[in-house]
Design a protein around this nucleic acid. Sequence first.
RNA 1: GGGUCUUUAGCUCAGGGGAUAGAGCAACCGCCUUCUAAGCGGUCGGUCGCAGGUUCGAAUCCUGCAAGACCCGCCA
Length: 583
Amino acid sequence: MKSTIAHLENCLQEALKAAFSIDATPGSLLVPASNPKFGDYQCNVAMALSKQLKQSPRAIAEALVQNLQVSDTCEPPEIAGPGFINLTLKPAYLETQLKQIQASDRLGIETVKSVQKVIVDFSGPNTAKEMHVGHLRSTIIGDCIARVLEFQGHDVLRLNHIGDWGTQFGMLITYLKEAYPEALTTANALALGDLTNFYKQAKQRFDEDPAFQETARLTVVQLQSGDKETLKAWHLLCEQSRIAFSEIYDHLDIHLVERGESFYNPLLADVVKDLDKSGLLVEDQGAQCVFLEGFTNKEGEPLPLIVQKSDGGYNYATTDLAAIRYRINQDHADRIIYVTDAGQANHFTQVWQVARRAGWIPETVQLEHVPFGFVQGEDGKKFKTRSGETVRLKDLLDEAVSRAQADLEKRLQEEERTESEAFIHEVATIVGIDAVKYADLSQNRTSNYIFSFDRMLALQGNTAPYMLYAYVRVRGISRKGQIDFDNLGSVDMVLKDETEFALAKHLLQLDEIIDEVSRDLLPNRLCQYLFELSQKFNQFYDRCPVLQAEEPLRTSRLVMCDLTARTLQLGLSLLGIKVVERM
RNA sequence: GGGUCUUUAGCUCAGGGGAUAGAGCAACCGCCUUCUAAGCGGUCGGUCGCAGGUUCGAAUCCUGCAAGACCCGCCA
């Protein structure tokens, strides 16, 4: 099914060509109307062309309208203000479109014509540390981006670039050798929580004791060169972490392919060698570097990107360079998306610059950093527990669920409803997790994010519970009227009330939104759309009786309900959010 | 010193060249004999950080300034 905006855009292009022999750049002619009273779409080119054509914008608009053939979809176009062309969709067109999406299991949204191999690199926790609130945004945003691209039909590889290699293991293994040697030889000798504590202590030793530092550095080199005993200890630590991570990923319903930094270890030497061959490599103070263009240090001197440290070890720039090469040459990626905090923007710019100068990035490959702001507490400072500790992701999710459960139980009591334990548990789990995800996704990711349980679990406003409730209302109609939405028979759509028109038009815009999200990688646009959909449905629900309506209105309204529910379910599923039938 | 990001209603945020700048929360006023009121309608609330510039048109683009956050040679 062709999207309405694409169709109208075509018509405008032809009109522009017929009237003025102008070829417009695609996608530039038409935008959704800024205000419903201006119709559904507006075209603003007449003003822009005024100078070039030496005619008044209104004259240009009139000539355009005369050549514009949209009578199949729109009411006669109207020219307003200085030269806006306003288009309003015909009811008959809306009714036909609704019937089409009703009959489609993808709600009329086609898969993309040119399938890309897309790598989404997200989550990326560190082995031997518990996942904490700092991993929340990458995990949730990355999953959403992957889901949207998958739905469009792209070939998506979700990579978990785990921090399972490097200096921290030198520290940790060195520390465990002296403090808790069993942990390095026996599986499950320690819980991950203990490891986190050991990690902190190891870090402290590292910062205080130069001798310890030296041993730790040596251990890293041993690890990177494949020393058996060190490697075994490392394997145990990784396995321990893996178990804890997968618990969280299961809880969040997120799937990733693990390919940690260690994966690229055998490829690191070649990165340095090839940089040397291409003449970019410079030795400076014993370290192998590439000096960057456009980056200077405090003294105004060129800044190096270090790819091999003076002790022979490699660092994360080397790993990222190896990863780029592997992803392009072995995975054949067309688009590589990195979902990390905004603080790493510099790092990626630098690494990509070096990769480009080395000639490793074909022009057809798109590298994108998807940055996001930090999670802050309600005081605007870094999000911490009351005792000042980093918040563990597990604790955060558990608290969301238990708060959701308390809300639900309170409401059940107030309404004198009784529900089974299983029901309460299931609803609370889904609502709690949904709330955490939605709160994060609904905000423009570039700014810092103030985390608040109270706000995300609020029963009204732009929250997960509000949207779940809109969905539940439809399911309520289905139960009450014993409606089988899959078998409504032949349907004649009848749009009467203004809330029905508003809802219908909104339902038909899902394709535009998904397109936009896949392009700009801003999940909050989809959240905004779904929130508005819920609002429009609730307005419709308030104004239009469904089950008591006379035919053919009744069936038509049932279709509107069904389409709303399916759109919500699909849209939310692209956010990684589950629905419930009752709540 | 260099770089990135942020600054819009009391609070949390949308909007990233187009018409009179929007939403949610908070506050206040209405609406349940009718599909779950976790809902709907309404009122109140703005010098879009400041100053210039580009444009027919700027919250949006450019330049400067201010405030805040983060990054900048051997952590990732």
